[in-house]
Amino acid sequence: MTSRVEHTDVGAYALGLLDEDDRQAFEAHLLGCAPCRAELADLAGVASALDGIGPVEDPRPPSPEPVIDLLRRTKVSDKRTRRGTFVIGLAAAITLVAGGLTIGTQLSGGGAPQVAAQGHGHDMGPAEQFYADGKPIDGKGVDGVTGGLVVESKGWGTHAALKLAGVKGPLECELVSVSKSGERRIMTGWSVPPAGYGVPGSPDPLYMHGGSATPLKDVDHFEVVTSTGKKLLTIQA
């Protein structure tokens, strides 16, 4: 775990998904990082909340294991099944933004959550910090939408931090990775409030994390799409 990406492991630490070496390194990092301690405090109760969520929907016979157990079991076994990669994507999609925690639309039965933008003059959250420290890839938008991604390869797939502006709501959106073979994976989902992000009257852009089980080397591009299928932003890998 490098110093540049330590902030992104708050969610994995809170859920007990880090291996022993990374856990110890992150605990050492916590001693000197007030933002991560604050984010970790905000995550209090998330693990217990996930313990109460039933297994994700799947056409195969249901498992009695709660989501948190599926996450841990999948990390240990590293099974290359459809359900396994889905659960890895869910773990990666647990993202921190200003004002709280966003869990992407991979959670079955839930609507897209409201998220908050992060502006200037504040302590940057993990998604904005990762974006600021990285090398953004600018996207090509439509109807005045702008934004980009900072991406990195992880052991479980691809991690990305999104910046999005010039979008008005109400909308429900998803960040999707598209592999070179055409396979599409939802990285995270959110709802855009009527005021929007990065527009007059609501100038702050949206920053948020997303994760895909597709290895970065196999990703062709990323898309921000609405629930109606409209493509707002395309970013080449």
Rank of each mutant, 00 (worst) to 15 (best):
L70Y: 00
L233S: 04
A161W: 01
K180V: 08
V192K: 00
L171R: 01
K135H: 13
E27A: 14
G201V: 02
Q129A: 10
V5W: 10
Y207P: 07
K154W: 07
I88T: 15
V142K: 15
A34F: 05
S212Q: 01
S191V: 04
T105G: 14
D218A: 09
E57T: 13
K75A: 12
F86A: 11
G166S: 07
G104V: 14
G141D: 05
R80D: 13
G110M: 12
Q118L: 10
R185G: 06
W156P: 01
P215C: 05
V219K: 02
T226Y: 02
K231Y: 00
A12I: 03
W156E: 09
K180H: 06
G182N: 03
S181P: 03
M1L: 13
P59W: 08
Q236D: 13
M208R: 07
E39T: 15
E27Y: 04
V46C: 07
D51A: 12
L18R: 00
G109F: 00
E174I: 11
R80L: 11
L206C: 03
L31P: 09
Q114S: 11
K180L: 12
G134Y: 01
L216G: 06
P64D: 02
G155F: 01
G229L: 06
P200A: 12
V10Q: 10
D138Y: 02
D9Y: 15
V167N: 02
A41P: 01
R23F: 00
A28D: 15
G229F: 05
K168C: 04
W190K: 08
